[in-house]
Amino acid sequence: MNGEELRDALRKEMASTTPPPPLSTEATLGAARRAHVRRRALWASLGSAAVVLAVSGFAAVATPDDHVYQPAGQGPLASPDGSGDTKEPWPTGPDGQPQEDRTARAGSQHDRGVQLLNEVVSVVPAGYTAPEDPANQPADQRTLRTHQAQFEEKVNGVDRWSYLSSVAVAQGDRVGRVIAEVHDAGNQLPTEPCALARDFWGMQGECQVETVGAVQVGVVVRPGDDDRLDQWSAYRHPDGVVVYLAQGAKLDDTRPGLKRLPFTVPQLAALAVDERFHLR
């Protein structure tokens, strides 16, 4: 095959590929913002996925662009401009000094991350367990419980944070996971329930609106091409705090996945509204 024949073949292959459905402007901009923040966190904290797992042991999560995101990594994170030098100091830690990176390792924000982890463990339903990590866990094995408090941005002079916790949920030798992510009031996430739900990690999917009491919750009941998680709910409280609750039948490729997800769709929607996850 000569060069011209190769180019013709590639053009035919591209023409036969069905393009993805168009995204709304709001969802696209939201996904881009989220992916940008995750990439900044990634490149400063990773030399490679193997190095991160060996050093921190935390549960890696793939971002929409197929990189690895550490939900609760201990390594340094990037500066706002990606250069390694901050234009202004990171938020001040409890010692009165600027943090060394985005992750709070002490103080009130760190404590909220721990609180979120404990709340996720507390809602694991009967018939499932939330196993803890063994004392001598291999460095290359995914951590079963993680938490992180991460500085997102400064809006009108006020620091805005997000909090993420991931908990392995088991039934016998089968393991899935439940994830909670909370964003401070003042965030720039969408308002409409399904637009908010589809903005989670930039993922898309089949969304429906569930009514919980007097409020509406967006729930992605079936993911699109991105199948890292199976279902997730999203709710914006009246004060602007955003809560995501997600569940996946599979934790990683080393363990068999759950046969049934821990929560029904109405239960997942109700958890997003639950005051236990309304961090303030």
Rank of each mutant, 00 (worst) to 15 (best):
D111Q: 04
G186D: 11
D159L: 15
L196H: 01
A249E: 02
R40D: 13
Y244R: 11
K154E: 12
A249G: 01
R222M: 09
R145C: 14
A44Y: 13
V219H: 03
V265F: 14
K12Y: 00
R236I: 05
D95R: 03
G257E: 10
E206K: 01
N118D: 14
R34T: 01
A72C: 13
D66M: 09
A50Y: 06
N187S: 05
A78L: 08
R105L: 13
P223I: 07
T143V: 10
P262A: 04
H278P: 15
A62M: 13
R145P: 14
V120H: 01
S233G: 02
Y235L: 00
G248W: 15
K250H: 04
G96E: 11
V265H: 10
H110P: 02
M203W: 05
P134W: 01
V273W: 02
Q171T: 13
G157F: 06
A139H: 04
R236S: 00
P223G: 06
L251N: 06
N136C: 09
A272L: 11
G257F: 14
G213W: 06
Q208R: 09
Q216T: 11
G113T: 11
L23P: 00
T25D: 12
W161Y: 12
A197V: 08
V265W: 11
Q150K: 13
G157D: 03
T18S: 04
A149C: 10
G93H: 02
P256C: 12
S56L: 04
G107K: 01
S48A: 12
V68P: 00
R255S: 10
P125H: 03
P94T: 03
G157V: 14
P21F: 02
Q74P: 15
R105Q: 10
T129K: 02
A214H: 12
K87H: 05
Q231G: 05
E132W: 08
R198Q: 15
Q74L: 07
A270R: 04
Y69I: 03
T92A: 14
L23N: 09
L116H: 03
S122G: 03
L6C: 09
V37G: 06
A27M: 07
Q109R: 10
G73H: 05
T143E: 04
D239K: 09
K87N: 07
L279N: 12
K12V: 04
R38V: 11
E5H: 02
D85W: 07
Q216M: 04
E88N: 14
V51F: 13
K87V: 14
A149F: 05
A170P: 03
S165E: 03
G205V: 03
G172V: 05
Q74C: 06
A15P: 08
V61K: 02
Q109A: 14
V265T: 14
Y235D: 01
A60K: 07
R102L: 13
L42T: 15
W201V: 04
L251A: 09
P125M: 02
D133Y: 02
L268S: 11
G218D: 08
S83P: 08
T63N: 06
A149M: 00
V55G: 08
G96I: 12
S45K: 04
